[in-house]
């Protein structure tokens, strides 16, 4: 009862309320209110996350498992960032309220927290992001092979778009007059044709399908048919 029926009832009720609220004028702001709740809830849930992070890494260190030194590095950087951030150590005082320590700005690069963001966090994440250029190249080499009609379409389209995306497209077909019958063969017109008509159509259908999928999944949850989120203690 407490472990299954009540959660299902909570889910059903909150789902139905949100649907109804969309049609009631005074309830327009309810979704914002619950959004705020979610933000708070996920901030509180960091306790779970941090607890887990600690448990996993401490276990690695104490049992001297291979790579335990890296676990120690994780913990040290975690605690350093957490402490300077939560305590706003070295924060730049708020010009209007210089005496209130916690009113200070901790995100400028003059504070340790901001420095860590600017020179450690940000380069690491953007370089990870930048790695994608390499993987895009290797994926193109490996996966774009003309094995059947479908893959020919996939790679052919990618091929056209890749050329059209750069000045090479203009160099190759730019001499075809814009107003001639052959203008459709220009790479830039091909690209516009593909993206505006075919890709748009494909994406529309995918979007319509997804909308139905989302609606059906939501309904399954609200009706209590899909209960996979429930534990069975």
């Amino acid at each position: 009862m407490l472990q299954r029926t009540i959660p299902i009832a909570i889910l059903c009720l909150s789902g139905v309320i949100m649907i109804v609220a969309y049609f009631v004028s005074f309830a327009v702001s309810w979704s914002e209110t619950v959004n705020v709740w979610f933000n708070i809830l996920s901030a509180v849930a960091f306790v779970l996350g941090a607890g887990n992070l600690l448990a996993v890494n401490l276990e690695k260190i104490s049992s001297r498992r291979p790579g335990w030194a890296y676990a120690a590095i994780t913990l040290v950087s975690f605690f350093f960032m957490l402490v300077v951030g939560l305590l706003k150590l070295g924060a730049v005082p708020d010009p209007k309220n210089p005496l209130i320590h916690f009113a200070g700005d901790y995100e400028t690069s003059a504070s340790p927290y901001g420095w860590m963001y600017e020179y450690v966090f940000s380069p690491l994440t953007s370089t990870m992001f930048g790695l994608l250029a390499f993987y895009v190249a290797s994926a193109a080499f490996r996966a774009f092979r003309a094995k059947n009609v479908e893959s020919i379409l996939l790679l052919g389209t990618a091929f056209i778009i890749l050329i059209a995306q750069t000045a090479a497209g203009m160099f190759l077909t730019g001499w075809i007059p814009q107003d001639s019958v052959f203008a459709v063969l220009r790479f830039d017109s091909l690209k516009v044709g593909i993206t505006e008509h075919i890709q748009t159509a494909g994406m529309r259908a995918i979007t319509i399908g997804i909308a139905l999928g989302v609606a059906a999944t939501s309904l399954r949850l609200i009706l209590g048919i899909d209960k996979s989120y429930l534990s069975k203690n």
């Binding site: 996920s42 509180v44 950087s77 975690f78 605690f79 951030g85 450690v120």
Partner: peptide
Amino acid sequence: VCESVLIGVSAAYWMVNGFWTSL
């Protein structure tokens, strides 16, 4: 090392962010 630093720093970053902007 980069990976470990990134995990630690980013987890703390989002927690601090959650603390000061939400909590």
